[in-house]
Nucleic acid binder design. Structure first.
Length: 193
DNA sequence: TTACCGATTCGCT
DNA sequence: GCGAATCGGTAAC
């Protein structure tokens, strides 16, 4: 999905983004995944067919978006963490007036959903439907890809399931998840595996 | 029913 | 680097 295009259509206009950073969340085998403890009303979309959008609300103020990636009945999704705005820059800036430059527009999962105008009403939409307000298109070329630990995740920190486009300035700074224990060494981001 | 904390961001020190 | 904002899921009482 790195390098793929996301188009977000609304009455206000269209914003297009090229994905440069994603994270995998692997259902029943992954303690950090929302679907780890089984199906609920909130995570139901993750258990559905691939190519649909799973949107959830975090920290009482932000939305994050995932692409469902497993076969129907098996939970799994990829969190969209960052993108490069390649269309609709004016609308993107209108939605994120705090952004000081183009790089900051969609740097971070909640910023990305803000720029695309994604909220809970988009939960479950089919990204492969040409009529859908949110659409996913295949990348033209495969970019140089790097791998490392996921950002802000406390559980399963050993799983190197974050992927990003090498050198993309929109990629989030690494942040460790959970609380820090005294004497616990702070590990930085792995740059490759 | 209550308490805790998160797949975050922003502002201030 | 640290804390606030803010709400809903989850687990414990």
């Amino acid at each position: 999905m790195l390098g793929a295009r996301i188009e977000a259509h609304s009455p206000q206009g269209t914003v297009t983004v090229r994905l440069v950073e994603v994270e995998a969340y692997c259902g029943r085998d992954d303690p950090a995944s929302h679907s780890y403890r089984g199906r609920t009303a909130r995570n139901a979309v993750m258990f559905g067919p691939a190519g649909h959008l799973y949107v959830y609300f975090v920290y009482g103020m932000h939305f994050c978006a995932n692409v469902v990636c497993q076969t129907d009945g098996v939970p799994g999704a990829v969190l969209l963490r960052a993108g490069q705005v390649i269309g609709g820059e004016d609308l993107a800036l209108l939605r994120r007036p705090g952004a000081r430059n183009a790089v900051e527009l969609a740097r971070g999962p909640a910023r990305l959903t803000t720029v695309l105008g994604i909220d809970r009403t988009h939960n479950g939409v089919d990204l492969t439907d040409p009529e859908s307000p949110i659409r996913l298109y295949h990348r033209d070329h495969e970019p140089e890809i790097r791998v490392g630990p996921r950002v802000g995740v406390a559980a399963a920190m050993d799983l190197p399931w974050r992927f990003w486009v090498d050198g993309a300035p929109e990629v989030s700074a690494y942040r460790r998840g959970g609380r820090r224990v005294s004497g616990d060494p702070l590990v930085g981001p792995a740059q490759s595996f």
